[in-house]
Design a protein around this nucleic acid. Sequence first.
DNA 1: ATACGATCTCTAGTGACTAGAGGTTCAAGA
DNA 2: TCTTGAACCTCTAGTCACTAGAGATCGTAT
Lengths: 138, 138
Amino acid sequence: MFSIGELSRRTNVKVPTIRYYEESGLLDAPERTEGNQRRYDAAGLERLSFIKHARDLGFSIEAIATLIDLQGHPDRSCREATDIATAQLLDVRAKIKRLRALEKELVRISKGCAGDGVSEDCYVLASLSDHDLCEREH
Amino acid sequence: MFSIGELSRRTNVKVPTIRYYEESGLLDAPERTEGNQRRYDAAGLERLSFIKHARDLGFSIEAIATLIDLQGHPDRSCREATDIATAQLLDVRAKIKRLRALEKELVRISKGCAGDGVSEDCYVLASLSDHDLCEREH
DNA sequence: ATACGATCTCTAGTGACTAGAGGTTCAAGA
DNA sequence: TCTTGAACCTCTAGTCACTAGAGATCGTAT
């Protein structure tokens, strides 16, 4: 049995975030000491590691709740889990695509100005003012 | 002179968002009709277009405020503007890098499970439980 | 017994909006 | 001129996933 601070150290999840996960229903309320402090066991650690890993991969709290629910029903189909993972993958790919377009545009804009003139002549500011200066959609 | 709805249509920025920008200090408070409704002119349209374009490129409200301030002082150096653009570019690149790592991991995880078994055997769930199954950092 | 870091709950703040309630104004048609 | 109804107004609260701070209590080492 260990404290919330110890759990925090072992998982690299901040203490208030752990409490937040409990409040959100991702973590079961753990046992308490006589003095009302949380005490966790191996199961709590495992669960939080799962959550942390999923969050690191960008899954939403809601998606994680579904995944945890599925874990609790080992006899149910895992279709839902693979669907969630696939949706997450598509989301990540969409974000990458968009960011790449932004990157190109920002490179172009940044290159246009050495930063040594006055702002009146700044290509960065001009580019932002006038979308027509852009080469592609974003 | 046109209404907030007209401005919204011309810029593709939603009406509440325009009011939000005004409240945040990005947009000057426009003239009002006798009945207290906002009326914009060409300058307001131009300003909002600038903001919209910058937001589309991912600049924060705060960064945009600085850029607008620079626009208002055409004699000042544009170093700050190029710095902001460069920082934004680095930020975008960092996000892309991270997302690419996530993408790889998600592909691997998704591939591992056809989604036709029971959740007890699901590789998606197993992968999330056990970080050691991951091939690289993320 | 005391000190002090860790913990507790609760409220409020973040960024960039979005949604809704409840009321007023504008502009077009009868 | 009157009426209708869409558009507008302000204000509050909600979103997501935390983060920060206040003020009080607990646990443990000395």
